[in-house]
Amino acid sequence: MKAILAFEKGDAIRMVGHLDIMRAMQRALRRSMLPCRYSQGFNPHMILNFASALPVGVGAKEEIAEVTFDEELTAEEIFSALAPAMPTAMRLIKVRVVPDAHPSLTSLLAMADYEVELEPVPDAQKALDCLPAFCEKESVMITRKSKSGEKTEDVKQLIKSLKAENGRIYARVSATETSNLRADKLTNAILEFAGVKVAYRARRLSLYTSDGQPLWDM
């Protein structure tokens, strides 16, 4: 049977990379003593999939992962066994049992919301003030390193919405496997546009399907 889990990647562990978060989740599941399913073969591994990888430096309010069990369990059973086994900064938020035929989280995921908190220095206001101008720009090209060398892409094509509120930046961006805008790339593009250097903390808030439905509800 399958279940999806929502958990937090707290600010304290925002510097932890995706593979390490994966391993931490596997160990939490092992601590929970829940009957997780493992792959067959020479090197069996736990069947655990994340909706989306988070880069080093980005935290999350609500990440989603999918796990498969060998026995039938209720969401309550999973929650009560797993919640105390999670590291403090990786709090388990909720669990939902889904049908075995549930489409993969990565195939459903299309967009993500981010929040960016800027260090409270005078330059931060400058960055916030130029958001409207940034939004109006036709295109903002950035380069990113990929396996096949450097690639340039237009950040603006990947932004669905962008605004400032309470001194923070809020953005909805594309998050599919082929066109994904990382929060750090976006923030760096904004800061570069504003011509300032400001420290920031980015958090992913929630994940959506292509028609704007929360991924969790699917």
Binding site: G10, D11, A12, I13, R14, M15, V16, G17, D20, A24, R27, A28, R31, V56, G57, P87, T88, A89, E119, A199, R201
Partner: peptide, 23 residues
């Protein structure tokens, strides 16, 4: 978690060495 420390963390290799929060 001071901004000062955070700024250092974003500039170093393996920042997870310094942030704790382990199980």
């Amino acid at each position: 978690v001071s901004w000062n420390a955070e700024k250092l963390l974003s500039q170093v290799e393996k920042p997870g060495r310094y942030t704790g929060g382990e199980m």
